Amino acid sequence: MTQSSPTHKVMLLVGATSDIGHATALAYVEAGWDVILAARDAAGAARNAADLTARTGRPVPVVALDITDTAAFPAFVRDLPRLPDTVVSVVGLLGDQARAQSDLADAALVMRSNFEGPALLLGLFAEHFAARGSGTLVGVSSVAGERGRASNYVYGAAKAGFTAFLSGLRNRLAARGVHVLTVKPGFVRTRMTAGMPLPKPLTAEAAEVAAALFRGAEVTRRDVVYVRPVWALVMMVIRAIPEPVFKRLKL
């Protein structure tokens, strides 16, 4: 793995088969970046890479990565052709709350997919970026992590952990030349949310998330981005509800 490139900046996208991942990759490629797609489903990532190449004429390599196979992370990073300038994790597994309540393996998969895997991988890249003195780490978390709700507290707890990890990483690396961005999309119209009743004013499109992510990471250098700013107000109200009242709400 080399430290620099004579031509374009490189972004590594983890979670490349998702709708948000595909839109994010397109935003970076169209901005002139070289993009590497990483996903457990290498065939699905290859289809997205082919689409990106057809749209832009730029080659988009694909590498296999299972975000739950944390033991493979050091070799994965070592075998990259070069150390990326930016690493973006859009990995997410909504899971099924009812099943996760009684199925420990299912709950563990949700927690490992949304917190353990992404956090450990970004933490590993953080060490390389700190040694180099530059780099950007982006984690797509969720407003669901701001307060536990009965309807999705396993997923929400995992995202809460990821949000806290990114915050601590940002605090530690602020003086080391490494930028850490937390993105909170709220509801997004994707395959993962297909069939769910989504409130239109609070629901973003995948391309909207990608645009906000790219701007926050590479232009404005923000710390935390709510894709739709209204979510900051919504969550401030939800966090302020007293616990005795909150327990009686069906959220």
Rank of each mutant, 00 (worst) to 15 (best):
A25E: 01
R149T: 14
V178I: 09
T182I: 14
I67G: 03
A232T: 13
L104H: 11
E243G: 03
T70S: 13
F115S: 15
F125T: 14
G156N: 08
L52K: 02
D34K: 08
L198M: 06
T203W: 02
V35L: 03
K184F: 05
R55C: 08
S4D: 11
R172I: 06
L120V: 13
A160V: 05
L26P: 01
A206N: 04
A119F: 00
V140G: 02
D69L: 12
V237M: 11
M111T: 15
G216A: 12
M235L: 12
L202C: 06
L137F: 04
L121W: 02
I241R: 03
A206K: 01
V138E: 00
L122A: 12
R82Y: 06
A207F: 01
F125E: 07
A204E: 00
G133C: 09
A64G: 13
L124W: 06
F246N: 08
R149E: 12
R47L: 14
K159E: 06
L93R: 07
V143Y: 01
H128F: 12
K250F: 04
G21M: 05
R58W: 04
F76E: 11
F125Q: 10
A108I: 13
D106C: 13
A131Y: 06
R222N: 11
I20S: 00
V209C: 06
R78S: 06
E30G: 06
G177K: 03
A232L: 11
M111K: 10
G177M: 04
G123V: 12
R191G: 10
V219Y: 00
T220M: 05
P244I: 09
